[in-house]
Computed example of a mutant assay.
Amino acid sequence: MAKAGRALEELVATLETLLSDSLVEIKSPDRIRGKTGGGLREVDVSLRTRVGSANILVIMECRDRSDPQTVEWIDAIAGKQEEVGANKAVAVSRSGFTSHARAQAQAKGIELRTIGEVDRASVWDWLGVAVVTARVNNLMEMKSAQIIIPDSVSTEANSEALSIVSGAASDALILVKTSDGTPASVLDVWRAAPQSDLLSSLRPGETKRGTVHLLPSDPGQWFAIPITDDTVPITEVVIVADFRVDERNVPIARFEYLGDDGPLIEGASAEFSHEGSTVKMVIHSAPDGSMFLVVEQPDGADLSFEANLVLGVIDNDEDSTPAEQ
């Protein structure tokens, strides 16, 4: 389970990446060996670069609390800065700082950052839209599935693979992820693969039965059938199912990433959740006027703010062997 405040740390790391050049290495979180005791100290965000022959380390600590942060937190950050030998420390608080904390930060040379909410009415002036449409792709009921095995697979391996997948349920862990060997099911393939034109053509609330060919967007992040002492690759999975698409309007919130001298970067975000998965879209405007879109979506989430990468339905490969499930 992610620790409280992790979302703020990830946001800060993203904002600092946009503000930094390509020579700055940014990690979140990072573990740095302390000067005393030799133990590792965790920092929320670290930035490393070189100036001439000198290595420069900046650490950033983040807090997503409801009350302004106090001098005690500033002192703790100053102590951590000294312990890890950082050249600079930055404190980021979504709720701001007390006046004593600001004075102590100035005395200790610690820079302060806040995430400031901006009037929602200004979102339209900034982006030209105040809401975005969230799209949820639902597989209502799977009727059948074919797992396609290349003809290059040996007869013995093909036979063993067929015996594993034949008649298995859609949620049975008959596959593995090629990236790390994690057990997976046909439903996991559905969640991971780019969605089909069939789904993009559905009207919100409409249910339709159709055939979808699931192919990898990245061959290194695909699936295989585990057999004795090996795995059998698969080229695609063909499913027949009832599908439905739901849509909802999600309001956009605008924010500013503020330093002591004013805004460093502006942004707008929208997020929605469905069945335990959350997708977040963030638009960032850099000081030079350029804009960046970042979409954060967990693996296996059938959610999007716009159509997922679309790959049209194609015919079965005549040189492949279908493995009926």
Rank of each mutant, 00 (worst) to 15 (best):
G34E: 03
G289S: 02
I234H: 08
M140F: 13
F292I: 00
H274L: 02
A168V: 05
G300I: 13
S20G: 10
I164N: 02
W222E: 01
A270I: 00
H284L: 09
V279T: 07
G52V: 05
G300E: 13
G312F: 10
S304D: 10
L187V: 10
S166M: 10
V294R: 12
D64F: 14
P150W: 09
E141C: 08
E318W: 11
A301R: 07
T14Q: 15
A224S: 07
A270L: 02
D229N: 13
D317Q: 13
L199V: 15
E256H: 10
P233V: 13
V58G: 00
N137V: 06
T182D: 05
V92T: 10
R48I: 03
A89P: 12
S122V: 07
L23M: 01
V240H: 06
R248T: 13
T211G: 07
F223V: 03
M142Y: 04
A161P: 14
I283F: 04
S28A: 15
G79T: 15
E72H: 15
Q221L: 06
L198K: 05
A145D: 01
P233K: 14
L57G: 12
M1N: 09
A76S: 13
S66C: 04
A193R: 06
F305L: 01
S28I: 00
E61M: 03
W190N: 12
G85F: 11
H100Y: 05
A134K: 11
D151C: 12
T155P: 03
D197K: 15
T36Q: 12
V279D: 02
L57T: 14
F255I: 01
I147S: 08
F243N: 12
S53Y: 07
I239S: 04
M60L: 13
V43T: 08
Y257D: 01
T114H: 08
Q106G: 05
G34K: 08
Q221A: 07
D188S: 14
L214F: 03
R65P: 00
A89W: 06
V176E: 04
T211S: 13
M1S: 12
E256R: 13
Q221F: 01
A4F: 09
F97C: 07
T98E: 02
V232A: 04
R203C: 02
L8T: 14
